[in-house]
Design a protein around this nucleic acid. Structure first.
Length: 420
RNA sequence: GCCGGGAUUGCCUAGCCUGGUAAGGCGCAGGCUUGCUAAGCCUGUGGGGAUUUUCCCCGCGUGGGUUCAAAUCCCACUCCCGGCGCCA
C-alpha cells in the first residue's frame, strides 16, 4: 500500500498517479474518512488520558473518594466504548480504500492506456528462417507424444494438461537448468510451501483485489500460490533486516495456480492454463539501489533465453498496463514462429516499498536513524511451460525436436523424435 | 488427535506466584573523549495522533472476560518446544 502520510501531505501526487493509470478512484472520500478518523481518535485519546489519570489517583485516596472515582470511570468508559467503535469503523473505511490504491508509477514509466502503448527497449537473437511451415507447440506436443491435453482435462477439468515421456523430462530439466543458472549468479535457492495464508496473499497485494483469480482451500483459509513471489516476498515478513545483509536474492521453483476467472482463451495450448511451473526471482533491496537492481534482474531473466538461444524482446510497460503493486515493470517476450509473434515469458517488477509496507519488512543500519522499509522486486526467471512451448516451436524439425545444447546435461537426450 | 511446557520491544532476556502502567544486555543511530584498524562514556531506539525542542494514546502471540487498574488473574484460539498416537 502507499503511505497514508503521502496522501495527507501530497494528495496531488497520488491523484496524478491514479490518473496516469487511467483509474477512477474516490480519493476525496478516503481523505474525508481519514480526517474524521483523526478527529475522533484525538477525542478518544483525550478520554483515555482522563481515565488513566483517575486510575493513577485511585490508590492514593480514601474510601469515599474511591467510590467517586469508580463511578466517574464508569461514565467515561461508556464514552470511550462508543468512540472506539466509531474510530474502528472510520479506520476500516479508510483502509479499505487505501488498500485498493495501486503503487505509484516511477517517473521513467511511459504514459499509456494499455498494452499497445508499451515500449520495446531491446530485441535479441535472430529469428530462424524455416524451410517448412513451423507448427504451433500444441500440435507438436501431440505429434511427438509429449503433451496430453485430453488426459489433463479428464483429471482436473478444462485448463489443465499433462506432460508425457520426454516432454515430462524436458519440463523437469528446464526447471533445474533455470535454478542452477540463477544460483550461479548469487541467488539463494528456496523451496517454498505452495500454499499461503490470507495474510501473506494480502501482503504482496494479491488480496483483496485478486481473490477471484486464486484458488482457496475450503477448510483451512489457505490459498494456492499464483506465483512463488508470494512465498519469497513474505519470507521475511515482520522482520527487521540489517543493512549489511542487503540486497537479498532469492530463486524458487513453484507450481503456480490461477483460476483465470472470466478470461477468454486468447492463448492456445499450454500458454494460458490453471496450473503451470515457474522459476521465480525475488530481490530485497535498499531504496537507493532498487531501480538499478531491477535492470540486473531483467538481465538475469533474459540470460536464460540467451543461453537457450531463443529470440526475444524486452518491453517497458506503460502506466496503463502496470501491475497493481509495481512501480516499474519490464516484460520479456519470447519469439513464437508459428504465430509470428512474441509472447510473454517473464514479467520483472520493482514494487518499491509498496509490499514492504504491507508485510512490515524494514531494515536498519547504513546511517539510518530509524528503521526504513525495504524495496521488493520480483521477476519470472522464467515461466517454464511457456519456455517449453517456445523451445518446441523454435527448435522443431519436420521429424524431430532438437534439445538446446545447454539443456542436454539435464535431459540426458539431445532430441525428441517421432519414435519416442 | 491427546497430555504437558512456552510466546515480552529489531534480537536476547527480567517482570507473572503476590495486579499499580515494561527493567537490563546486544545490535543500530547520534554525540563526547582518546595519538595510532581499537576501546570507553553519554543520549536515543516499536506503532499512531497533535497545538510537533514538548505532550498524549496504543503496544508484552491473537481475541474476549474480571477489576478503579491486567504483561501479571480467568476463558477461548493460533503458533513453537517436548512426550504419546498416527503416518509418506
Amino acid at each position: 500500500m502507499i503511505d497514508i502520510t503521502l496522501i495527507r501531505k501530497n494528495p496531488k501526487i497520488v491523484e496524478e498517479a491514479l490518473k496516469k493509470r487511467n483509474l477512477d478512484f474516490p480519493l476525496d472520500k478516503l481523505i474525508e474518512y481519514d480526517k474524521l478518523y483523526r478527529q475522533k481518535l484525538k477525542e478518544l485519546e483525550k478520554n483515555r488520558h482522563i481515565k488513566n489519570e483517575l486510575t493513577l489517583k485511585f490508590p492514593k485516596v480514601n474510601e469515599e473518594e474511591k467510590q467517586k472515582i469508580a463511578q466517574e470511570i464508569k461514565r467515561i468508559d461508556e464514552i470511550i466504548n462508543s468512540l472506539e467503535k466509531e474510530v474502528k469503523e472510520l479506520k476500516e473505511n479508510r483502509d479499505n480504500l487505501l488498500y485498493r490504491i495501486p503503487n505509484i508509477p516511477h517517473e521513467s514509466v511511459p504514459y499509456g492506456k494499455g498494452e499497445e502503448d508499451n515500449v520495446t527497449v531491446r530485441e535479441w537473437g535472430e529469428k530462424r528462417v524455416f524451410k517448412f511451415k513451423p507448427l504451433p507447440h500444441y500440435i507438436l506436443g501431440e505429434k511427438f507424444n509429449i503433451i496430453d491435453f485430453n488426459r489433463g482435462v479428464k483429471l482436473a477439468g478444462s485448463g489443465f494438461y499433462a506432460l508425457k515421456n520426454k516432454g515430462a523430462a524436458l519440463e523437469r530439466a528446464l526447471i533445474n537448468f533455470m535454478i542452477d543458472t540463477h544460483v550461479k549468479k548469487g541467488y539463494k535457492e528456496i523451496f517454498p510451501p505452495f500454499l499461503i495464508t490470507t495474510e501473506g496473499a494480502f501482503g504482496t497485494g494479491h488480496l483483496p483485489k485478486f481473490a477471484d483469480d486464486m484458488y482457496k482451500t475450503e477448510k483451512d483459509d489457505l490459498w494456492l500460490l499464483p506465483t512463488a513471489e508470494l512465498a519469497l516476498v513474505n519470507f521475511h515478513a515482520d522482520e527487521t533486516l540489517n543493512y549489511k545483509d542487503l540486497p537479498i536474492y532469492y530463486v524458487a521453483y513453484s507450481a503456480c495456480f490461477r483460476r483465470e476467472a472470466g478470461r477468454h482463451v486468447d492463448l492456445k495450448g499450454v500458454l494460458r492454463v490453471h496450473q503451470f511451473n515457474k522459476v521465480e526471482l525475488v530481490k530485497i533491496t535498499t531504496p537507493e539501489t532498487s531501480f538499478e537492481e531491477l535492470e540486473k534482474l531483467v538481465n538475469d531473466a533474459e540470460e536464460i533465453l540467451r543461453l537457450l538461444n531463443i529470440p526475444y524482446r524486452v518491453r517497458l510497460l506503460c502506466t496503463g498496463d502496470l501491475g497493481f503493486a509495481s512501480a516499474k515493470t519490464y516484460d520479456i517476450e519470447a519469439w513464437f514462429p508459428s504465430q509470428n509473434k512474441y509472447i510473454e515469458v517473464s514479467s520483472c517488477s520493482n514494487c518499491t516499498d509498496f509490499q514492504a509496507r504491507r508485510i512490515n519488512l524494514k531494515f536498519v543500519g547504513g546511517g539510518r536513524k530509524t528503521p526504513e522499509y525495504v524495496h521488493t522486486l520480483n521477476g519470472s526467471g522464467l515461466a517454464v511451460g511457456r519456455t517449453f512451448a517456445a523451445i518446441l516451436e523454435n527448435y522443431q524439425e519436420e521429424d524431430r525436436i532438437i534439445i538446446p545444447e545447454v539443456l542436454r546435461p539435464y535431459t540426458g537426450f539431445s532430441e525428441i523424435t517421432l519414435e519416442d
